[in-house]
Computed example of a mutant assay.
Amino acid sequence: MVRLIALWLTLCGFVCPGFAEERPGLPAKEAAEGWLMLFDGTTTFGWTIQGKAAVKDGCLVLGGDQETLATTNASFGRVAVAFDAHAQGGNGVRLVLGSREEMLPAASSKGLTRCAFVLDMAMQAAPIQFRVPAGTSLTLKDLRCLPLGLKPVFTGKDLAGWKELSGSRARFEAGDGELHLRAGPGDLQSAEQWADFVLQLDVKTRGPQMNAGVLIRGQPDQAGSGYEVQIRNQWQGDDRTRVVDYGTGGIHNRVPARLIAANDGEWSTMTVMAHGRTIVVWINGYPVCEFTDTRVQGKTASQGAKLDRGPIAIHGDDRNLDVSFRNIKLAELPRPKP
């Protein structure tokens, strides 16, 4: 039925909002817990590979006849990492986070072995790496991570620690663990400021074609400032990769989401990692967007690469908004050295 509606809308020249159908990403419970897919099962998106890599039957295969280094483009401070692994041809495969290394188990005749580690970089956030020596092939499946140490930045009871910016037409209300954004436009901005961090929150759009966002590294008391992580569950026809207006998880005016991994009327978990010039976004655990700002550093994100501290904000664009947020939490990442 959903596909028939989507087809009718397409034939009539309309685009399809986020109808409640099966979405990409992790199951709702795992997504809500904060787990993130480091490998989407079909591509090497989110990785920089030095050496050999291939995707086969839903697995990421690294190495072979030459040494291979696979590095995430996202960086982490304290993180749990879990995956299924099988090494062939030798040992010495290492999982690395900065100066921390873990040796992977020796190859098992039973095939894939479930592995789990907790890695902690207290001094400086770093990417996750797999180092595969020459002559060894490493097969990985269900590769995911869980950022640790996030703390609430929204009480769920009131707007303490936040302020509605002057000129806002939106209505922001807090209670029962949720923050409600109605009407618009307008911004609710945090009093505290951050530069490098992992931010997680749950969001529900309570109608079709809602247009909102989360602003990061903004300017205090300046509406609409910062990088905007878009909230818009809308795509063309029945193809979630044909996103409208950058799509949920896209960086507005910079890089669109790869696909829409959220549905209207359902709680979805958004994760934003900002570290130095790189911003990575997951929706329901699925990696949807990656942006590295190569511009000359500027005072604001509209003028250049905004690297220093700034507030975050819940941002509404349209008058017909009805969007809810909950479980807004954040872990600051150790800053990269100059």
Rank of each mutant, 00 (worst) to 15 (best):
V214G: 01
L4Y: 11
G285A: 02
M123V: 12
W282T: 06
D196L: 11
T113I: 05
V272H: 03
T42S: 13
G276L: 03
G46Q: 07
T10W: 14
K29H: 11
V288N: 06
R131A: 05
V280R: 05
M123S: 15
G167L: 09
F172A: 05
D176Y: 08
Q236D: 11
V118N: 01
S302W: 01
I328P: 03
T269M: 08
A274Q: 08
F14A: 15
L119P: 11
T269C: 12
A274Y: 07
N91V: 12
G213F: 07
K306M: 06
E102N: 09
A261W: 06
F117Y: 15
P152F: 12
G224W: 03
A6M: 10
Q222N: 07
V281N: 03
L36K: 02
R94P: 13
H275Y: 13
K29C: 08
A20K: 07
R3Q: 14
G161P: 04
A32Q: 04
G58D: 07
I251L: 14
H86M: 14
A262I: 05
K151I: 08
G63M: 07
V55N: 08
N263P: 10
A87W: 08
A174V: 02
Q236R: 15
K141N: 00
D187A: 07
G135P: 03
G149T: 06
E228L: 06
T300K: 05
L97Y: 12
G13W: 09
A106Q: 11
K299P: 00
A223F: 03
Q297G: 09
C145H: 04
T139K: 05
L333C: 10
L97Q: 14
G298P: 09
D308A: 08
T48Q: 10
T139N: 04
A31F: 00
M123R: 15
G224E: 10
E33S: 02
E332Y: 03
Q129V: 01
M121H: 09
Q200D: 06
N263C: 10
Q297M: 14
V118C: 05
L201R: 03
F172V: 07
